[in-house]
Simulated scan of single mutants.
Amino acid sequence: MESFDQSVLRVLSDVEFITARPLSGGLSNRCWLLELRHHTPRHKPDSSLRSAPQNVSYVWRPNAASSRAFGVSRQHEYQILSLIQSQHIAPAPYRLLESGLLVEWVTGQVVEEEQTTSSDNTKQLPLLSDVELMALQARVHQLPMPTWRLEVKSKAEHYWQFIPEHVKTPLLQSVYADFQYNALPIGFADTCCHHDLGRYNIIQTEDGGYKIIDWEYAAAGDPSLDLALTINANGLDPLMAVNAYCSALQITGTQEWHQAVALWQPWCEFLSLLWFLVGAELWQDDTYTEQALQLLVTLTDK
């Protein structure tokens, strides 16, 4: 098993390293759960009493080959988490380092669409309904907007550079050229967008609320694109999802939103296709290749 490189903590003179373990489930990243001990100072100069050292858990999100290949900026991630920290919808950022980012560990459980039980029927996973998910999506779009933007064609071009030449079949090259040549859909004014609002990135906290994690793709962008990405990531019915989203924001004219989401959906599949091909090269994982081939078939059948 890969060991954690403790050299990243040398600049953190106010903490003591306790433990580290790799986190599973991350697709773009291979992150670590760290336990660090904070040594608090004396309450008063003349006091002989010290506060007990406090152990705190953080997620270490490194700058690595994967973050470069996927075009992830830890500086941007730190900035958006700092910008929205007062909204209590995301992990609090702790420290931005040259080699990565430390953020608060959110205690809780990843939400599911339906109630499920463990094999011993003693543990239930928290439920987040589709309507609640759309309300959370609406809340994201009302957050303060970052200063950088997701440029879809630039993102596609970035992914393309990290796909091996032998993978770029004539069919794949044709699909890539067609999308890069075609005009982007015209949707709505930019808002804050998460761009990866799958249930796998939503935690129900111990107080019953919800926090969204993994803001590495967050940027200003067309909210209808973000909505289309959320629909695809969660396998939602577009009609229901758009209506629920518009209801959450008290939008009465839903037809424009339905049209915009429908126009963005092939672009979402196109970006996902390229993303999976980059992931397949990074992780040498056949499941990424299989997902990419399914998307390629979907796009060429339309």
Results as ranks from 00 to 15, higher is better:
53 P>L: 08
54 Q>C: 05
54 Q>T: 05
56 V>R: 02
57 S>I: 01
58 Y>G: 00
59 V>C: 05
60 W>N: 00
61 R>M: 01
61 R>V: 04
61 R>A: 02
62 P>W: 03
63 N>Q: 10
64 A>S: 05
67 S>K: 04
69 A>N: 11
69 A>T: 08
70 F>Y: 15
71 G>A: 15
72 V>I: 15
74 R>W: 06
74 R>V: 09
77 E>H: 08
77 E>T: 13
77 E>D: 12
79 Q>D: 15
79 Q>Y: 07
79 Q>P: 06
80 I>A: 09
81 L>E: 06
81 L>Q: 10
82 S>Q: 09
82 S>C: 07
82 S>Y: 02
84 I>K: 07
85 Q>E: 10
85 Q>M: 04
86 S>K: 15
86 S>C: 05
86 S>G: 08
87 Q>C: 12
88 H>Q: 13
88 H>N: 14
89 I>N: 06
90 A>F: 05
91 P>R: 06
91 P>T: 09
91 P>M: 04
91 P>G: 10
92 A>Q: 13
92 A>I: 05
92 A>L: 06
92 A>K: 14
93 P>R: 02
93 P>L: 01
94 Y>A: 01
94 Y>E: 01
96 L>A: 04
96 L>K: 02
97 L>I: 00
97 L>N: 00
97 L>M: 03
98 E>Q: 15
100 G>Y: 02
101 L>T: 04
101 L>P: 01
102 L>R: 01
102 L>F: 02
103 V>G: 04
103 V>E: 11
103 V>C: 07
103 V>W: 01
107 T>R: 09
108 G>N: 02
109 Q>P: 06
110 V>M: 12
110 V>R: 08
110 V>F: 12
111 V>P: 09
112 E>V: 07
112 E>I: 04
112 E>F: 08
113 E>K: 11
113 E>L: 04
115 Q>T: 11
117 T>H: 01
118 S>K: 06
119 S>K: 07
123 K>L: 10
123 K>N: 08
123 K>E: 07
124 Q>M: 13
124 Q>T: 15
125 L>F: 13
125 L>E: 12
128 L>F: 05
128 L>W: 04
132 E>M: 02
132 E>R: 03
132 E>A: 03
132 E>L: 00
133 L>K: 03
133 L>R: 03
135 A>N: 06
135 A>K: 08
136 L>W: 04
138 A>S: 13
139 R>L: 11
140 V>R: 14
141 H>N: 11
143 L>R: 11
144 P>Q: 01
144 P>I: 02
145 M>Q: 13
146 P>Q: 09
149 R>G: 00
150 L>I: 09
150 L>P: 04
151 E>W: 03
152 V>G: 09
152 V>T: 14
157 E>W: 07
158 H>N: 12
159 Y>K: 08
159 Y>G: 07
160 W>H: 09
162 F>P: 03
163 I>E: 08
163 I>W: 07
164 P>G: 04
164 P>K: 05
164 P>Q: 05
165 E>R: 12
166 H>L: 04
166 H>C: 05
166 H>F: 11
166 H>D: 11
167 V>K: 13
169 T>V: 14
170 P>N: 14
170 P>V: 14
171 L>P: 12
171 L>R: 14
172 L>K: 10
172 L>M: 15
173 Q>T: 15
174 S>Q: 15
176 Y>I: 11
176 Y>W: 12
